[in-house]
């Protein structure tokens, strides 16, 4: 198991290097030059060139990327050009907001989707099943930022109980978490329902019933633990989505997360910050996927056996 984890961690390094390469070059292609923006309006071309050298932005793109990668491999993600602070410092400052939102939304999503998905599967082809299908379909088809706008309209403009944006208090968290949570609940409900439906037909549930296990425990114990396997897969990508894909929702609610930070960095051509943020995102996503794969092993003994080999 430890060897498996180590191998996975090592495999992340080339992936991260590739990501940094792709992002760095995309940023380089973008029109607009941060140096001329940073320089005073009356700066001569010579002064701009001097500033460029000062910032380490001289030379061809390959030279610059080489320097960037060299520093990166030494654990230095560089300094944000627009904020004039170390990238890692800015990132770490924004991270708690993102994590808070991600976990709150996952909790909401799980609280809705697992019971609903199970109920839908155990009441297959009833009104309950039908409405769960409709609701989850609606939630995956709705632009999440639109739902956010509707919620703001309802709960901060009409009924003034929650702030429409910003962060700080628990009240600030509720609307964005609800928006993101609802979006993810759709997918999770669908997968819970379908994997439950699949498990419910298995012979071993009949064995459990024939043993005298009550229907409640047949579902909660025997079926759910098997159905969790595909649910965990989706949960992994959902979490990844909550980290980075929530940009639009962060924008709607003026939530100071890293998604918005990244978009701002890209928009201002701050390539060190943008590249750094996306690398960190990728790292977080990959770590999440690794955690998911480890979680598998705890749910499914067959997977555990494969890892130990």
């Amino acid at each position: 198991m430890a060897r498996y984890i180590l191998r996975r961690l090592l495999l992340m390094i080339p992936v991260l290097i590739c990501v940094s390469f792709v992002v760095f070059f995309l940023m380089d292609l973008a029109p607009g030059d941060i140096v001329s923006q940073m320089a005073p309006a009356d700066a001569t071309p010579e002064q701009i060139e001097m500033l460029r050298e000062e910032l380490g932005l001289n030379g061809t793109v390959l030279q610059r990327y080489g320097r960037y990668l060299w520093n990166l491999l030494h654990g230095d993600m560089g300094t944000s050009l627009s904020l004039k602070r170390p990238v890692i410092e800015v990132f770490v400052e924004r991270l708690p907001a993102t994590l808070k939102l991600a976990f709150a939304s996952i909790v909401i999503a799980l609280a809705i989707s697992i019971p609903l998905g199970i109920a839908a599967a155990t009441h297959h082809r009833t009104w309950l099943d039908g409405s769960s299908v409709v609701l989850s379909m609606l939630s995956v088809s709705m632009p999440a930022f639109w739902l956010g706008l509707l919620l703001i309209f309802a709960f901060s403009y009409r009924i003034k109980i929650f702030p429409s944006g910003g962060s700080g208090t628990f009240k600030h968290l509720i609307l964005p978490a609800l928006t993101l949570g609802t979006e993810q609940a759709g997918n999770l409900t669908r997968i819970t329902r379908s994997s439950m439906l699949d498990v419910i037909r298995q012979d071993y549930l009949r064995t459990a019933r024939a043993k005298g296990v009550s229907e409640k425990y047949v579902i909660r114990k025997h079926a759910l633990k098997n159905a969790l396997i595909p649910i965990i897969t989706v949960l992994g990508s959902t979490l990844g989505n909550a980290f980075g894909g929530a940009v639009a929702i962060e924008t709607v609610f003026a939530w100071p997360g890293i998604g918005r930070l990244t978009v701002a960095a890209i928009n201002s051509r701050d390539m060190t910050l943008a590249t750094g943020c996306i690398i960190m995102f990728t790292l977080m996503l990959n770590m999440t996927l690794l955690v998911v794969d480890i979680a598998y092993a705890y749910v499914d003994p067959r997977v555990k056996a494969r890892y130990s080999k």
């Binding site: 992936v15 990501v19 792709v22 992002v23 995309l26 940023m27 292609l29 973008a30 029109p31 990844g240 989505n241 980290f243 980075g244 894909g245 940009v247 639009a248 998604g259 990244t262 978009v263 890209i266 928009n267 051509r269 943008a274 996306i278 995102f281 990728t282 996503l285 990959n286």
Partner: peptide
């Protein structure tokens, strides 16, 4: 590994 919307933002910025 890169969230799709951020990748989209980067591509849109790069190519206009």
């Amino acid at each position: 590994g890169i969230p799709s919307i951020l990748m989209g933002v980067a591509l849109m910025t790069a190519f206009g």
